[in-house]
Amino acid sequence: MKLYSSFRYQVCSHKNDLSLYYLIILCLHLLEIVVAVPITLAGTENGTTVIATTNGLSAVSCMFMMIAGICSFRENFSMTLQNGVSRRSLFLGGLCASAVLSLIMSVMDEILCLLFQLLDLLPGVQLESHSLLETTYSSALSGLLPALTALAAIPFSFCLLLAFWGLGYFISVLFYRLGKLGRLLIGIGSGLLFLAGLPGIFELYSRYPQWPIWAVLENMLWKLFLLAFGAPWNTGVSCLVLFAVFSFFTWLLMRRVALKK
């Protein structure tokens, strides 16, 4: 098995992207602080306060992971096939690599979050820095010690990042398998769904609220939403389930994929 070689290659192929990503994030946040602090200091005299925030870092990391997933397949597939790696080893290596990347990023995100929380202690600095877990589930975490909350944020982010990577990788393999027409149809179709389909449904909902379907849908979707994302652990498990589902369909698409010319 060339599983370890495949895993090692796939992890290392993201080394530069990951370093660059955190360098940019760090620079952006530092720039934000550098800009916000003088305004805050000047503002305290006339009663206005500017609060710099680093919230949302996890969400940006999720986007990064999805894009990393999208970019992971094509190049790695041809490189590993060139070097005698089977699709199975590429897939399993990819799963392991995504777990390692998610772990690194969830730890890094939390470290950055804590670092910016420390900066808040400096005089003249008003800085809000919370992890996605704290921002989304503040009431559920109210009884927890700050240290435990910080620790809990790591597995929470890990599951979230994993799900986004799974989605990105699935999209990438799906588009690789599809022909030109399929790519066009799915590309335009999903664009239309988001730009016209969903607003259309909301428009119908606002015009005809008396339709019984809305009550059924609302009831069902809300229950489903609560079950999947009602509490931090539910969200974590739901993300893992999503990751497993995306990975399963990715494997179905990948196991017979041929190298394109």
Partner: peptide, 14 residues
């Protein structure tokens, strides 16, 4: 597959 190597016209390296 580890017993063979194909040098192909298509470049498979990034």
């Amino acid at each position: 597959q580890s017993r063979l190597y194909l040098m192909s016209e298509k470049t498979c390296y990034p």
